[in-house]
Nucleic acid binder design. Structure first.
Length: 835
RNA sequence: GCCGGAGUGGCGGAAAGGCAGACGCGGGCGACUUAAAAUCGCCUGGGCAAUCCCGUGCGGGUUCGAGUCCCGCCUCCGGCACCA
């Protein structure tokens, strides 16, 4: 249009705009919050990052999603806590120390500085005054304090336990550091060693952690299922088999007590404590011991190789099947795990595939004791697939003919009546091993005294500081071990010479309570004040990657439960709602340095600005789905923002200052159409955010509104100032959570004062959303044949009559009798004819 | 092997039993321009055209009506993986 300005550029200076508003937010402390009992609170949290040095697109996505939620809830009148911090202990810092000869501490803090700068440049609405870093003594002091509370409650204990050991690096490896049974650093095959390790007694909470999943309707079903499987509760029977010629019993755990008549041999784990006595009289003792040593060494490789071979040896001992009275041989097998059940099983090859494989390899007898309800009886001599379904009991003495599930209960009853065992529940979940033979972690606050034994460091002596002046040598050993000033100490109890624990804690411990520290981050006297935590907790919306579905999310739930039991917090559950975002892909694969398909957020922000980067990521896919990166798509988001900027600029320039507030119905049809579109868009965007977190469709609705606005503007017809003013105001408010900088700029262009992020979320008028007439689809036999415009409140009869009167409808009816007419008010008519 | 999730235009994706493909990308055409870019419009699943027909991984079913619900498969992605 000639009368719209001609001198204005077609793109806005995103760099100037974004920096201007970021500066203003910071000056005004816009996102700083404090407890305010007069307002409803909302705690929005994204998983805090490990400070690797640079943000990747997964981070940008995570924090963009969280920022939409935080900004939206703020506009909805909530007192929103939206903090950020650093999961700053961990192995990469130590690897960098060894490789680049730089101490983990400055390496980490430099990384934090850079990532903080990146986050600020993205304009995420964090309350930066609450920033925490788990590697700071002000933080880990309280991690240590929490450890002591666990210790006092009997939930932290020490025991000997097998660990992954790299003989080349001479150190312990975490499970994650073992790749295909080899050391991730030097590729040496990993072996097993026994070490004294600290554990948290999470198994004591197994049942509650399981049950409480039912109280988390706001969590994805997928995550809850993964946790259920991880906890792995199963009901079974422990049965003690007398060992022949020994005053000793062999307890086994089985979920299939109904198959006990088919038990033809026993298998114990190589580490089973009875093994030395079982093999004492065997002529093959030396060979067996060699075999056990082999299994132990190959354990990790065999376990990670697909379908590890089942190997074993006969111990020379027998036990007695308490139901058949038969002698059955006891074997040692690599497929029986010491850590589950009793470390021993009764093998029923006919009804368990693993037992069958083992039996076939070593020629052990197979006996079918469950017959299929229909279909042929498996042939014990030739079967290669175990029959594991339910059926009818056979070859089972007095239990023959019973349904096996019924028989299972009867046999369990009999076991208990005879006092040779009892029903029990078994979990797959193990206690949480928290000891790490690492430097860059939270020191475990324990000293060992020759006189007093294990002595916790008194709370008033915390923190146990991590010494900074240590040398990193590529020995793989924690430098703490050789740091005499650290190791040598005095016993807090008797004052005698003592040694410090040199292990540090698993970093998952640090991240199991950070959401509590965010509630009270500067507290010098406590980990957190009860009233502050009780005001903010639980986290209303937690957002992060699905890779934390099991460990982090389970450990955090465990911590919160324990702390509630200890009376330190009120909320029993840390995270009310959970959103697991999808991955960011490029060319169909996850972005990774090794694949060379990464996109640098800094480069995108430099080229297009933060608003564009955020808008693209939110628009390209719904949050839970994987997102395919597209440079052209980013370009599209950039174009859209410029389009909005031009729209607002042109109309303001054309019409001058615009009045605030709600518009009356439009002065003509075009204005009324636009007004309806404005209100419909407010309704759609609100529903998409509120009910489904479908930000992609929310943004597409805003795009449609902008398109409608352009049609109105370009038509050159008369302007309805009130409708335009209201429309632009609502448009800018709707855009605020998605493109926070541009929204501020446009708000200012509209001549409005105050931050757009402090305005209330726009409302829609339900009357304005409704059109007077609606289009009805007319179908004949389910196929669309025509359309029909009727009054909004037309009766079913009127619609039916109007539809039947249409020529095209009559044509397709073709004189056949009308069997039925389905009328869906406001939507469609379906005329059903025979044939 | 077990447990999840997903298969829709050239691409990312819409559609919570009711017009399949909203919105965006890509492509085409037009306006503006000396020209190009930018911008503003219009068109864009396939069948050469159609008012007709076909189309949401495959095969069945329920329904007036199915991308959506049910049964049986196939493919891809993710998690667990000798848990007795």
């Amino acid at each position: 249009m000639a009368r719209t300005a001609t001198m204005r550029p077609t793109t806005y200076d995103f760099d100037a705009v974004e920096q201007k508003w970021q500066r203003r937010w910071e000056e005004q402390d816009l996102y700083r919050v404090a407890e305010d009992p007069s307002k409803p609170k909302y705690y929005c949290l994204e998983m805090f990052p490990y400070p690797s040095g640079k943000l990747h697109m997964g981070h940008v996505r995570n924090y963009s999603i969280g920022d939409v939620v935080a900004r939206y809830k703020r506009m909805r009148g909530f007192n929103v806590l939206h903090p950020m911090g650093w999961d700053a202990f961990g192995l990469p810092a130590e690897n960098a120390a060894i490789q680049h000869n730089i101490h983990p501490s400055p390496w980490t803090w430099d990384n934090i500085d850079n990532m903080r700068r990146q986050l600020k440049r993205l304009g995420i609405s964090y309350d930066w005054s609450r920033e925490v870093a788990s590697c700071h003594p002000d933080y880990y002091r309280w991690t240590q304090w929490l450890f002591l509370q666990f210790f006092k409650a009997g939930l932290a204990y020490k025991k000997r336990s097998p660990v992954n050991w790299c003989p080349n690096c001479a150190t312990v490896l975490a499970n994650e550091q073992v790749v295909q049974g080899r050391c991730e650093r030097c590729d040496t095959p990993v072996t097993t060693r026994e070490l004294e390790q600290w554990f948290f007694r999470i198994t004591q909470y197994a049942d509650r952690l399981l049950e409480d999943l039912d109280n988390l309707p706001g969590w994805p079903e997928k995550v809850k299922i993964m946790q259920r499987n991880w906890i792995g509760k199963s009901h079974g029977v422990e049965i003690r088999f007398p060992i022949k010629g020994m005053d000793e019993v062999l307890p086994v755990f089985t979920t299939r007590a109904d198959t006990i008549y088919g038990a033809t041999y026993m298998v114990v784990a190589p580490e089973h404590p009875l093994v030395p006595r079982l093999i004492a009289d065997s002529p093959d003792r030396a060979a067996i011991e060699r075999f056990i040593e082999d299994v132990r060494r190959q354990d990790e490789i065999a376990r990670t190789a697909e379908e590890g071979e089942k190997l074993g040896m006969f111990t020379g001992s027998y036990c007695v099947n308490p139901f058949t009275g038969e002698d059955i041989p006891i074997w040692i097998g690599n497929y029986v795990l010491m850590g589950y059940g009793t470390g021993a099983i009764m093998a029923v090859p006919a009804h368990d595939q693993r037992d069958l494989d083992f039996a076939r390899r070593y020629g052990l007898p197979v006996r079918v004791v469950i017959a299929p309800k229909d279909g042929p009886m498996p042939d014990a001599a030739t079967m290669t697939e175990a029959f594991v379904d339910d059926g009818i009991m056979v070859n089972s003495g007095p239990y023959d003919g019973l349904a096996n599930r019924e028989g299972l209960e009867r046999i369990a009853d009999e076991v208990e009546r005879r006092g040779i065992g009892q029903r029990r529940v078994q979990y797959r979940l193990r206690d949480w091993l928290i000891s790490r033979q690492r430097y860059w972690g939270c020191p475990i606050p324990i000293v060992y005294c020759g006189q007093c034994g294990i002595v916790p460091v008194p709370e008033d002596q915390l923190p146990v500081l991590l010494p900074e002046d240590v040398a990193f040598k590529p020995t793989g050993q924690s430098p703490l071990v050789e740091k005499e000033e650290f190791v040598n100490t005095t016993c807090p109890h008797c004052g005698g010479a003592a040694r410090r624990e040199t292990d540090t804690m698993d970093t998952f411990v640090d991240s199991s309570w950070y959401f509590l520290r965010f509630c009270d981050p500067h507290n010098k006297n406590e980990a957190f004040a009860r009233d502050k935590v009780d005001y903010w907790m639980p986290v209303d919306q937690y957002i992060g990657g699905v890779e934390h579905a099991i460990l982090h999310l389970m450990y955090a739930r465990f911590f919160q439960m324990v702390l509630a039991d200890l009376g330190l917090v009120t909320a029993e559950r840390p995270f009310e709602r959970l959103l697991t975002q999808g991955m960011v892909l490029k060319d169909g694969a996850k972005m990774s340095k090794s694949k060379g398909n990464t996109v640098d957020p800094d480069a995108i922000v430099r080229k297009y600005g933060a608003d564009t980067a955020r808008l693209f990521i939110l628009f390209a896919a719904p949050p839970e789905r994987d997102l395919e990166w597209s440079d052209a798509g980013v370009e599209g988001a950039y174009r859209f923002l410029n389009r909005v900027w031009r729209l607002v600029g042109d109309l303001v320039e054309e019409l001058g200052p615009l009045p605030a507030g709600q518009a009356a119905p439009g002065q003509d049809a075009a204005a009324e159409d636009l007004r309806r579109m404005v209100h419909r868009t407010v309704q759609r965007v609100t529903q998409d955010i509120e009910e489904r977190f479908h930000f992609n469709t929310a943004i597409s609705a805003i795009m449609e509104l902008v398109n409608a606005f352009y049609l109105y503007k370009e038509s050159g017809g008369p302007r309805d100032r009130a409708v335009v003013a209201e429309g632009l105001e609502k448009l800018v408010l709707l855009l605020a959570p998605f493109a926070p900088h541009l929204a501020e700029e446009l708000w200012e262009m509209l001549g409005r004062s105050g931050s757009v992020h402090e305005q209330p979320w726009p409302a829609y008028d339900p009357e304005a959303v409704q059109a007077d007439t609606v289009e009805i689809v007319v179908q004949v036999n389910g196929r669309v044949r025509d359309r029909l415009w009727v009054a909004r409140d037309a009766s079913e009869e009127e619609v039916r009559a109007a539809a039947l009167a249409m020529p095209k409808v009559q044509e397709h009816i073709g004189g056949r009798p009308v069997a039925r007419v389905v009328v869906v008010p406001g939507r469609l008519v379906n005329v059903v004819v025979a044939g």
